[in-house]
Amino acid sequence: MELGQVYAVLGAAVAAILAGIGSAIGVSTAGQSAAGVVTEDPDKFGQTLLLQALPGTQGIYGLLIAFIIMGKINIFGGMVPVAEETGLMILMAALPVAIVGLLSAVYQGRVAAACIGIIAKRPEELGKAITFAVLVETYAVLALLASFLLVNGIQV
């Protein structure tokens, strides 16, 4: 086992862990909010569920980058040798999706909770509610793009 390989695995783990934590927090905040609305008005289950699911995407982005890194170091086929600095580079490349994923999911959860308040009063405005929550997603997508291009650009 080389240190480079350890760094690369750490990169994959960090992407999955941090983005996953963010999504878990975000989805739970929005979920509590949705539960509040459904307690009083069970017909709004579908609309609130949609909003609850939005902060879940960051976890998927993190996992996606983790998979790409795993493919790159061929983890399922015996693992290729990775130089120390290459491993470090892979770790760094994973950071955008990990950190931005964590924070954007937490905050998207808050926006989703607020938007569930819109659904409580004006279910016909679902489109607007989703738009607000989706705007936070932009930055998670940008971070995913950055991580994706970085990981792809590193030659092992």
Partner: peptide
């Protein structure tokens, strides 16, 4: 703050 998410959205319905 997270504990408030449930309570506040229940209130949102009651406000109507």
């Amino acid at each position: 703050n997270t504990n408030y998410a449930y309570a506040v959205s229940r209130i949102r319905v009651l406000e109507t």
